[in-house]
């Protein structure tokens, strides 16, 4: 048995039926613990005051904004190469979540930027890259919405996702070249924690874990919806044939 067996819609539905009852409460617990701990039970930063606590929303959403696209890229490749329908639908399901996460990262960044840098928006490379990433999400979702035939839509959006990924990376470098920027380097790497004090590190990790599980949960739920909607189309098609 290989991992590919989960690409079978039936097995996917059965497996997620069993997983979701555990996943949903776990997600809620992690997010509530991470955010409540982060917001109310951490000390204020000596320079940034309480504003720093937006990090518990900003960092996880920014991570997911990028990684959702990465997941869509992998799912698109799986669809193009192995023609597993669930994979294409998972990519479709992930896009609005990724776009929302990108939006949250941008909005929380603006709210944080105002007291820190004295401006809601600056054409800083990181901010600009995220805005461009958001545009890529919009285009991807618009293409899905515009095409009626589901397999054609899956094929074309997968091709767009591939090409878009290359251009997203190019844009990242181009934007860096264009403006050196205000934004600090990444505050977090999993191995090191030198930029972040312990008091923030644990709630931040819990919050990130909560966001990741939230993303997984939403993708699973939305993929289930997509599978059901495809089933509906199949039944309607049968009526037309009869």
């Amino acid at each position: 048995m290989s991992i590919w067996k989960y690409a079978n819609p039936k097995l996917f539905m059965q497996t997620t039926d069993r997983v979701l009852p555990f996943l949903i409460p776990l997600t809620v617990v992690l997010m509530v613990v991470g955010l409540v701990w982060g917001f109310f039970f951490t000390p204020d930063d000596y320079r940034q005051g309480a504003t720093v606590k937006i990090i518990f929303l900003h960092v996880p959403s920014a991570m997911l904004g990028i990684n959702a696209w990465l997941m869509m890229l992998v799912a698109s490749l799986i669809w193009l190469i192995r023609r597993h329908h669930v994979s294409a639908l998972a990519a479709r399901a992930a896009a609005p979540i990724g776009a929302t996460m990108t939006m949250i990262a941008l909005v929380t960044g603006a709210i944080w930027g105002e007291p820190m840098w004295g401006t809601w928006w600056a054409w800083d490379p990181r901010l600009t890259s995220f805005l461009i990433l958001f545009l890529f999400y919009l285009g991807y979702m618009a293409l899905w919405a515009a095409i009626e035939d589901p397999d054609t839509a899956a094929d074309l959006t997968s091709v767009l996702c591939l090409v878009g990924s290359v251009f997203a990376i190019l844009s990242r470098y181009a934007v860096n070249f264009w403006n050196q920027g205000l934004h600090q380097g990444p505050s977090l790497t999993i191995a090191q924690q030198q930029h972040v004090a312990d008091a923030y590190w644990y709630p931040l990790m819990i919050s990130i874990a909560g966001f990741i599980l939230f993303f997984v949960m939403m993708v699973l739920l939305r993929t289930r919806t997509e599978i059901r909607s495809r089933r509906l189309q199949a039944l309607l098609a049968r009526e037309r044939m009869a």
């Binding site: 919009l138 285009g139 293409l143 767009l160 251009f167 844009s171 181009a174």
Partner: peptide, 23 residues
């Protein structure tokens, strides 16, 4: 082949134009 493809086309293509425009 898409109806109203023109507007969608702009939405798809403009983000891809970013690196060319910048350089």
């Amino acid at each position: 082949g898409l109806k109203r493809g023109g507007l969608l086309l702009s939405l798809l293509v403009l983000p891809l134009y970013v690196p060319t425009l910048i350089f």
